[in-house]
Design a protein around this nucleic acid. Sequence first.
DNA 1: TTCAAAATTGCAAGTATATTGCAGTTTTAA
DNA 2: TTAAAACTGCAATATACTTGCAATTTTGAA
Lengths: 141, 141
Amino acid sequence: MKKSDISHKAKDLLRSANLNCTRSQILILEKLLQVSRPLSRDEIIKTLGKSSPDQATVYRVLKRFCEKGIIHKAYLQSRAWKYELAHNCTETQCHPHFTCTGCGKTFCLKNSFLPLIKNLEKGFVFHRQQVRVEGLCSMCS
Amino acid sequence: MKKSDISHKAKDLLRSANLNCTRSQILILEKLLQVSRPLSRDEIIKTLGKSSPDQATVYRVLKRFCEKGIIHKAYLQSRAWKYELAHNCTETQCHPHFTCTGCGKTFCLKNSFLPLIKNLEKGFVFHRQQVRVEGLCSMCS
DNA sequence: TTCAAAATTGCAAGTATATTGCAGTTTTAA
DNA sequence: TTAAAACTGCAATATACTTGCAATTTTGAA
């Protein structure tokens, strides 16, 4: 995707979520659109370099994005959350994440979905499900 | 289960995992056997009261138990891991965990399993999978 | 364009979970 | 009984994340 397209898309997303088009929010959303894989606060700040917003701002923006449903917490990597765009997910489940026990890397399995869970106990209302897979990646196997 | 049975079982588990039957390890394992639901470091220390081992010890014991496969990290509750006995799990998956978005509580779904994931990308080796479900519990629905 | 309310930000300080170094103690097995 | 190995407590440390508050930016209406 071209840089101007990403910029445009970021602003559209912000507006449709009723968020202001501020420098920080645009930068962070553009970055997530650009790399299209989960990023942590740390990765966002480092890849944005000198122009990065303060870490408190990054957290607040990520939280805001989560509340609006633009992104969500994908998985935990050594005690830190990785955030990713929510636009690949259905209402009821996101793609599974695969963590390699060899190298520790995590991959998004964009082409695999499991059937939804059945036989929920009485009174429980299903909303969405998330699958994590452990194993060895192609480098480590 | 009777108290003496729990105590006996704890020691058996420790021995079969090649761990020593120390005061701390017995106490923590007995507690997990007794409540048979996931506990955090905090809950373990609080429910053990004055006789509880130091928090560093609790963490180290939990880590040791994880490495030996006696327990595993079940889920994260407000930034703290909950640990549970692994004896209800198969090699390839543990029971799903259900988190209520109303009250925030998490429940173990001991009677639900999903089929294992298929169509893993080339070279990826499946080891195990874990399912998390979100929704409303019977109190909140 | 102007301007005030609302939203957002930076900085610094604070919180909470978890980890580590090290000296001392307990457990185990020979 | 005893020495090696395993384990523990204490205090210090690491790190992810949160919060208070004053200052700045954004927005929409005049």
